[in-house]
Design a protein around this nucleic acid. Structure first.
Ligand SMILES: [Zn+2]
Ligand SMILES: [Zn+2]
Ligand SMILES: [Zn+2]
Ligand SMILES: [Zn+2]
Lengths: 142, 142
DNA sequence: TACAATATGATAATGATTATCATTCCTGAG
DNA sequence: CTCAGGAATGATAATCATTATCATATTGTA
């Protein structure tokens, strides 16, 4: 996919929320499929659910997810078992995870929005998303 | 065969801030080595720095780090490249990471302490540590 | 001392992710 | 319209941090 060099920075990459830029059909399909998932899921799991309706290579799914991250459309988090889970950036949920049994429970609140705005200014970073995870030992495991 | 009394079981004497339980010499060595590191580092890197003074197996380092996490003495975070970095829980630093070049800059503030206290009560979880990471694209990469 | 339980270390196995590379698709010039 | 260059794709091999194995060493206890 080659884009007009002069217009390179005008696409949706600038803001995290707006409509998708010039994505290929495969990349578009990955984004669409991810939007339909209620929970974050791994690249392989996503590849699994996509394969039902549309043939797509696993490597392409990985590559599309990487690109979508760079565009600020997709976020990731890593489980205790080392799997990377993906979700759309609109999904701002955080988790409390047991180090022993691995169970994860969602956390409702997110106290970092202000901090994001502050960092945005002081660091000349374009911030797309954040992860906030709590680790400990659950009731049953302690 | 009597052993040196000063080399008693449980090296509990070395402790300072948190009351360490009965750790084996190997586990204690891992904790001590980790405390001397100014930055979070991988299990393999820690194994490397430890090997200089004390022979220890890589598997033992991994196992000790896992145990120390369960004891609430050590925390972890995962880099973009998939490496797991370890540090003592007292090290409550967070990072802003570029999705393109991978550069990480530290963030000073941490706005989650109150939330931790609240979650502690409402979830019957014993919370040991948390990770807070921001992802985006740095100045030079955008 | 003898026994059971746990820790250790060397190494093989695992598995998610990446790299490779040949093929296909797209686009813009001529 | 046709062609060439560049990007995207897919199948597969390679990578590499982490785990599992398993034999040995250590520890605690009676
Ligand atoms: Zn648990
Ligand atoms: Zn949040
Ligand atoms: Zn960068
Ligand atoms: Zn913090």
């Amino acid at each position: 996919m080659d884009r007009d060099p002069s217009a390179e920075k005008n696409c949706a990459a600038v803001s995290a929320v707006p409509p998708p830029p010039g994505l290929t059909p495969g990349q578009q399909a990955v984004l669409t499929a991810l939007r339909q998932q209620p929970q974050p899921l791994s690249a392989q799991a996503l590849h699994g659910v996509m394969a039902v309706q549309r043939s797509i290579g696993l490597a392409t799914v990985y590559r599309a997810l990487d690109l979508l991250k760079l565009l600020g459309l997709v976020q990731h988090r890593v489980t205790l078992s080392g799997e990377t889970l993906y979700s759309v950036v609109e999904h701002d949920h955080h988790y409390l995870t047991c180090l022993q049994c691995g169970v994860s429970v969602p956390v409702e609140t997110c106290p970092v929005q202000e901090l994001v705005a502050h960092l945005q200014r002081t660091n000349s970073f374009r911030i797309y998303y954040h992860t906030l995870e709590f680790f400990g030992v659950c009731d049953r495991c302690s």
